[in-house]
Design a protein around this nucleic acid. Structure first.
Lengths: 221, 221
DNA sequence: ATAATGGATATTGTATCCAATTTACAATAT
DNA sequence: ATATTGTAAATTGGATACAATATCCATTAT
C-alpha cells in the first residue's frame, strides 16, 4: 500500500480553523484594537454555529489576543505602552538566551536558509509581507536551539506585539536598520559567536522597543 | 451610597469555575498524568452541560495542562524528562531576571510578608500544603517586580511542573535544603543585593531541576 | 484458532434552542 | 430640557438535541 496518507485524527476542527484565522487577522493587524468580535457574525462567515466560534475566542483569550467580558463579548486586545515595553524586555531576555543556545547547533544548511530569508526580507517590496519575512528569519535561527517550550513562549509574545511592529515598519523607514541588524546577527551566527549573536539580538529588540514606544506614544497623544 | 460593592461583570462563569477547579486538581497532582477527562463526567459533577466543560478543557489545553485528540478526548498532559528539563532552564532564566527587577522595589512590608511565608513553609507539617506555601513565598517576592506579563508566564511554567515538584518534595527530604535556600534568598533581598538574589534563585531552581530529573528518571525505569 | 467484518455503545463535535444580561431608545416625571 | 424608568432588540452563556467518530465485542470467514 503506497498511499500519500494523512493522519485524519490530526485534521483541524472547526474551532481550530476559526482560531487560526482570527489569530492571523489579529496578529497581522487586519482586526484593529478594541474591535468587537461578534460570535454571530463570525459564525456566519465561517458557516458554522456559534459553538466553535466560542471555543476559538476562548483560545484567543488564553493567548492574550482578545479580552472578554461576561455577557458583553470579546474585543481585540490592545496594548498600553507599559505592556508593550514589558513584552519587549521579556523578548530581549528570552530571545537572546534562545539564540545563544542555538548558535552552536546551527548547521550550514540552516544558515543558508536563514541567509535566504534575510535577503528575501531585504528585497521585499510589499509591506504586507515584511512582518512575516522578518519573523521567518528569526524563527529559522531560533529553531536550531531545539527548545520547543522556549520557542512557543517566544511566538506567543511575538503575537502580542506583531501588529504594532508591522505598523511601525511601514511608517518610519526602519527597514534599513532592521536589515543591517539582521545581517550582523547572521554573520555572528556564521562565525559561531554565540555571545555576540545574543548581544546583537538583544540590541535589535531594544531598538525596536524604543522605536515602537515613540510610535505608540505619539499615536495616542 | 456606602455599599460593599462587587463588580458582578467580573463574577466567574461556569466555564471559569470548572477551569479553575480542574487546573487546581491537575497542578496539585490530584489528577494523574494521562488520566482521561470525560466531558460528561465532569459536567455531571459540576451539574452543568458539557458546553462550559469544553470551554474549560480548551483553556487547559492552551496552557499545556491537557492534551486533546479530536473525537478521542482530553487527558492530563504528562511531562518527559526533556520537557521538564527545558522548563526548569526557562524558569532559571526568567525568575532570576524577575527577582533582580523586584529587589529594588521591595518595601519593608513586603519583605515582612515574605518572611512570614518563609517561616510558614519552614514549619508546615502537612505535605499537601508544601507546594502551595513554597509558591506563595516566591510569588510574594516576585510581585514587587511590577512585571505582570513576566509573572503570568512564570506562573504558567510553574503550573506545568508543580505536580512533579510536590511529589518530589514529599519523597526525598528536600525540605531542609529548600528552607535553607529560601532564607538565603530572603536575606539577599533584605540586603537589597539584587544580583545575589538572582544568583541564588537561579541556583535554587537548578538544584530543584537536578533533583526532579533524578526522580523522574528513576520512576520511569 | 485467528483475523477480518459488522454493528452496538460510548464519546466527542456541532447545531439549535432557551435563558440571562446588556444596550439602545422611547416614555415619563421632575 | 434633563434625568429616570421601562421596554424591546441584540448579544452572550448554557442546555438540549443530533451528527460524526472511536471503541468494544460478537459474528463470520479463512
Amino acid at each position: 500500500m503506497k498511499l500519500r496518507t494523512v493522519d485524519i485524527a490530526r485534521t483541524a476542527s472547526a474551532a481550530t480553523i476559526i482560531f487560526e484565522a482570527l489569530r492571523k487577522a489579529i496578529v497581522e493587524g487586519e482586526l484593529k484594537d478594541g474591535e468587537p468580535l461578534r460570535q454571530d457574525d463570525i459564525a456566519r462567515s465561517f458557516n458554522t454555529s456559534r459553538i466553535p466560534v466560542r471555543e476559538a475566542l476562548t483560545m484567543l483569550e488564553q493567548q492574550g489576543l482578545v479580552t472578554t467580558q461576561r455577557y458583553k463579548g470579546a474585543v481585540v486586545a490592545g496594548l498600553s505602552a507599559e505592556e508593550a515595553s514589558e513584552i519587549f524586555d521579556f523578548r530581549a531576555l528570552l530571545e537572546s538566551a534562545v539564540i545563544r543556545a542555538a548558535v552552536p547547533k546551527m548547521s550550514p544548511a540552516l544558515l543558508a536558509r536563514a541567509r535566504s530569508h534575510c535577503t528575501a526580507f531585504a528585497t521585499a517590496t510589499d509591506p504586507a509581507h515584511w512582518g512575516e519575512l522578518n519573523r521567518e528569519f528569526h524563527a529559522t535561527l531560533y529553531s536550531a536551539s531545539d527548545l520547543p517550550y522556549h520557542l512557543s513562549v517566544v511566538n506567543n509574545s511575538l503575537d502580542r506585539i506583531d501588529r504594532y511592529l508591522r505598523a511601525q515598519l511601514e511608517l518610519s523607514n526602519g527597514m534599513e536598520r532592521a536589515n543591517r541588524e539582521h545581517l550582523a546577527i547572521l554573520e555572528a551566527c556564521e562565525a559561531s559567536d554565540a555571545d555576540e549573536a545574543a548581544r546583537l539580538t538583544r540590541a535589535h529588540i531594544e531598538g525596536a522597543k524604543a522605536s515602537l514606544l515613540r510610535h505608540l506614544r505619539q499615536e495616542r497623544s
